[in-house]
Amino acid sequence: GTVHVGDKTYHFPTPDAAKKFAQEIAKKLNLQVTVKNGTWQVH
């Protein structure tokens, strides 16, 4: 899975790992999470 946070991109071996990371970052930074075609965006 891929997660975009601002101008950074993180790659994870599984979709679940990407989802978990995106949700944790969003919670920590009080941001929104959207997913499109398996790519997570934190914004």
Rank of each mutant, 00 (worst) to 15 (best):
V3R: 01
A18M: 02
A17S: 09
N30T: 04
E24T: 12
H43Y: 13
T39W: 08
T34G: 05
A22N: 00
G1F: 14
V5N: 02
A26L: 03
F21R: 01
G6M: 11
G38K: 05
T34R: 06
F12M: 02
G6L: 13
P15N: 13
V42N: 02
P13V: 08
L31Y: 07
T34M: 06
G38H: 09
T34L: 06
Q32G: 07
V3M: 01
F21H: 01
I25T: 06
K8V: 08
Q23M: 14
H11I: 09
A17M: 13
V33C: 09
Q41L: 15
L31V: 12
K36N: 12
L29G: 05
K20T: 09
A18T: 01
I25Q: 05
A17W: 05
V33D: 01
H43G: 15
Q32S: 13
W40Y: 14
P15R: 15
E24I: 12
E24F: 14
Y10N: 01
T39Y: 13
D7E: 11
H11P: 03
N37I: 03
A26E: 02
Y10S: 01
L31D: 02
L31H: 06
Q41R: 11
P13C: 13
Q32R: 09
K36I: 15
Y10P: 01
G38D: 10
F21A: 04
K27L: 11
L31P: 00
Q41D: 10
Q41T: 15
G1Q: 10
V5L: 11
F21V: 03
P13R: 10
K19E: 14
H4C: 15
G38Y: 06
W40N: 03
A18C: 03
T39I: 15
A17C: 07
T14C: 07
V3I: 02
G1V: 08
T2F: 08
V3H: 01
T39P: 02
T39A: 15
G38P: 03
F12D: 00
D16M: 10
D16V: 08
E24V: 10
T2H: 06
P15E: 13
A26V: 03
K28D: 06
T2M: 09
Y10E: 01
H4L: 14
Q32H: 13
W40E: 03
T14G: 04
I25A: 05
E24G: 10
K36H: 14
T39D: 15
L31Q: 05
A26I: 03
N30Q: 08
A26P: 00
H11K: 09
N37E: 10
T34S: 13
I25F: 05
